[in-house]
Computed example of a mutant assay.
Amino acid sequence: MKTLLYLFSLMLAIALLGGCQPEPKPIAYGAANCAHCNMTVADNRYGAELVNDKGKLYFFDSSECLMAYTIEHPEFGENAAFLMVTDFTRPNELIDARDAIFLQAKALPSPMGMYLTAVADKEVVAKMKQKHGGRLLTWNEAVTAVQKNERPD
Score class of each variant (00 low, 15 high):
residue 26 P to L: 07
residue 22 P to G: 02
residue 100 A to R: 12
residue 139 W to N: 11
residue 4 L to S: 10
residue 56 K to R: 11
residue 72 E to N: 03
residue 52 N to C: 01
residue 68 A to C: 10
residue 108 L to A: 01
residue 149 N to V: 10
residue 99 D to Y: 10
residue 84 M to P: 03
residue 39 M to D: 07
residue 89 T to C: 01
residue 78 E to R: 13
residue 81 A to R: 07
residue 144 T to R: 14
residue 98 R to F: 01
residue 100 A to S: 12
residue 75 E to C: 01
residue 80 A to H: 09
residue 51 V to D: 08
residue 103 L to K: 09
residue 27 I to V: 15
residue 56 K to C: 00
residue 56 K to Q: 12
residue 75 E to K: 12
residue 69 Y to Q: 10
residue 134 G to D: 12
residue 96 D to Q: 08
residue 130 Q to A: 00
residue 111 P to D: 11
residue 47 G to L: 03
residue 91 P to D: 08
residue 28 A to N: 14
residue 1 M to T: 04
residue 147 Q to E: 10
residue 20 C to T: 10
residue 153 D to N: 14
residue 146 V to W: 11
residue 57 L to F: 08
residue 99 D to G: 11
residue 13 A to H: 01
residue 69 Y to H: 14
residue 134 G to E: 13
residue 107 A to C: 05
residue 133 G to Y: 13
residue 125 V to R: 03
residue 55 G to A: 07
residue 71 I to K: 04
residue 85 V to Q: 03
residue 1 M to Q: 09
residue 48 A to H: 05
residue 81 A to H: 09
residue 123 E to Y: 02
residue 112 M to F: 10
residue 59 F to D: 04
residue 116 L to Y: 04
residue 70 T to Q: 13
residue 152 P to H: 03
residue 119 V to E: 09
residue 78 E to A: 07
residue 143 V to K: 15
residue 76 F to C: 05
residue 80 A to R: 15
residue 121 D to T: 02
residue 136 L to K: 04
residue 143 V to D: 13
residue 18 G to V: 06
residue 32 A to C: 06
residue 88 F to C: 02
residue 146 V to K: 15
residue 54 K to I: 06
residue 53 D to K: 14
residue 151 R to L: 07
residue 143 V to P: 03
residue 7 L to A: 04
residue 58 Y to T: 07
residue 75 E to L: 03
residue 78 E to F: 01
residue 5 L to C: 09
residue 48 A to G: 10
residue 102 F to C: 02
residue 3 T to D: 13
residue 110 S to A: 08
residue 62 S to L: 00
residue 77 G to C: 09
residue 11 M to L: 13
residue 122 K to V: 11
residue 130 Q to F: 01
residue 83 L to F: 07
residue 41 V to D: 06
residue 112 M to C: 13
residue 118 A to Q: 12
residue 4 L to G: 14
residue 128 M to T: 02
residue 91 P to S: 06
residue 85 V to T: 08
residue 104 Q to I: 01
residue 77 G to W: 12
residue 45 R to T: 00
residue 152 P to A: 02
residue 49 E to G: 04
residue 62 S to P: 04
residue 119 V to F: 06
residue 140 N to A: 05
residue 93 E to W: 11
residue 40 T to W: 05
residue 83 L to W: 04
residue 152 P to F: 01
residue 28 A to Y: 11
residue 38 N to F: 00
residue 72 E to F: 00
residue 23 E to D: 06
residue 15 A to C: 05
